[in-house]
Design a protein around this nucleic acid. Structure first.
Ligand SMILES: [Mn+2]
Ligand SMILES: [Mn+2]
Ligand SMILES: [Zn+2]
Ligand SMILES: [Zn+2]
Lengths: 156, 156
DNA sequence: CTCTATTATAAGAGTGAGTCTCATTATCAT
DNA sequence: ATGATAATGAGACTCACTCTTATAATAGAG
């Protein structure tokens, strides 16, 4: 029912990603500066939600304040997404509009987050069930988040 | 964000709740002080995840530092739970050990969080699917979180 | 009931992730 | 080129949360 499953574009296709970001930026009358390009590229290279220190570690030339400013700008036009883990740092990744709907494995030990995809059948059953719950509570649903918490392969 | 309000009628199983908390505290060699009793009671009365200002608003006699300290202590013995919404304040509620497994409706406008229960059949299908995903990623699952984001009845 | 060791409290100082300011720099339009 | 606008980045600042520490409450021994 709900078109929550948008086409997934593999993050290894950097050129196509940059084209999509270019379009979104120009539609909002923003420039695709070198700073922004490197930020998007860093997120794409990681391929999983990362913290601000992760980003600076991958590209130390980027300034903290500029990264935060651009992450907010890019989030507003649907390029990136901020996710709230329990960790002291927020995590950032490419938006589902670009990389498709997915979920997260969150390691309680090292804090790393990994993308995973739910079986399409369960995903749609879940959507249906959540829509029911929402209408019962007179709640307007926008999107859901589903995280699995535990210990990653490296930490167990 | 609109102010939060306590429900008029406290649940009539408060006594049982206090008994359970007493047991957990004494097993860990902690005292069930007046501060801790009032904190647990405030969380029970709200019946949904609340922020620290919410708690102080409901019981202004409680000191901020004591609330934080006791919330951490109570979380360590499985009485309360801290949840990370995107909001500037963390949210706290009674642990699932005490109130059962459930999920959350999160309002993007006013920030309030509401407890909801998923259909048992879908819940077990989901568990199964997540277990598969975890084993495929060599990940040791502990628990999952499922939130529906949107606009609550009051805000839409 | 004292006395004492231990636990809990609370005011305020401290921490740090994230935001804001503003002077400088880059880019675009003419 | 010249002026207008957008973007940058260093550092000041905010504020949710933690830590310190002096005081208060409690349990247990005698
Ligand atoms: Mn999903
Ligand atoms: Mn569930
Ligand atoms: Zn790990
Ligand atoms: Zn609302």
């Amino acid at each position: 029912m709900k078109p929550n499953h948008l086409p997934k574009n593999p993050p290894h296709d950097l050129k196509q990603l940059h084209e999509q970001v270019t379009t979104k930026l120009s539609q909002a009358n923003y420039r695709y500066t070198d700073n922004r390009r490197r930020l998007v590229e860093t997120l794409a290279r990681y391929g999983r939600p990362v913290t601000l220190p992760d980003i600076i570690n991958a590209d130390p030339a980027l300034a903290q304040s500029s990264i935060y400013r651009n992450l907010e700008l890019l989030e507003n036009i649907g390029v990136t997404c901020r996710i709230a883990i329990g960790s002291e740092h927020a995590h950032f990744e490419l938006a589902e509009q670009l990389v498709g709907h997915h979920h997260h494995l969150i390691c309680k030990a090292c804090g790393t987050v990994q993308d995973v995809h739910l079986d399409l059948q369960i995903e749609s059953l879940l959507e249906e069930s959540l829509a029911q719950i929402a209408s019962r509570a007179n709640f307007s649903p926008l999107h859901h988040t589903l995280d699995l918490h535990g210990r990653c392969a490296d930490c167990k």
